[in-house]
């Protein structure tokens, strides 16, 4: 039965990790700009090739 004892604390601990992650998200303003992130993910980090446009 001591397995149950351990598991109860493990389950609370895991849930607690998610709670910490949630608080961390809020603190880092992840919910401040809900549109921006959706647009940002579409942009490549690297610039697309310099392409056919010459530097002028």
């Amino acid at each position: 039965m001591s397995a149950l004892f351990v598991l109860v604390f493990v389950s609370i601990g895991i849930a607690g990790l998610f709670l910490v992650a949630f608080i961390w998200n809020v603190k880092n303003n992840q919910y401040e700009d809900q549109k921006g992130a959706a647009l940002r993910i579409l942009h490549d980090n690297e610039l697309l090739q310099e392409s056919n446009i010459n530097k002028s």
């Binding site: 579409l42 942009h43 490549d44 610039l47 697309l48 310099e50 392409s51 446009i53 010459n54 530097k55 002028s56």
Partner: peptide, 12 residues
């Protein structure tokens, strides 16, 4: 924009 290689601006 072009001078700095940011022409993707016009592609998005």
């Amino acid at each position: 924009v072009a001078e700095n290689g940011l022409c993707d601006y016009y592609k998005i």
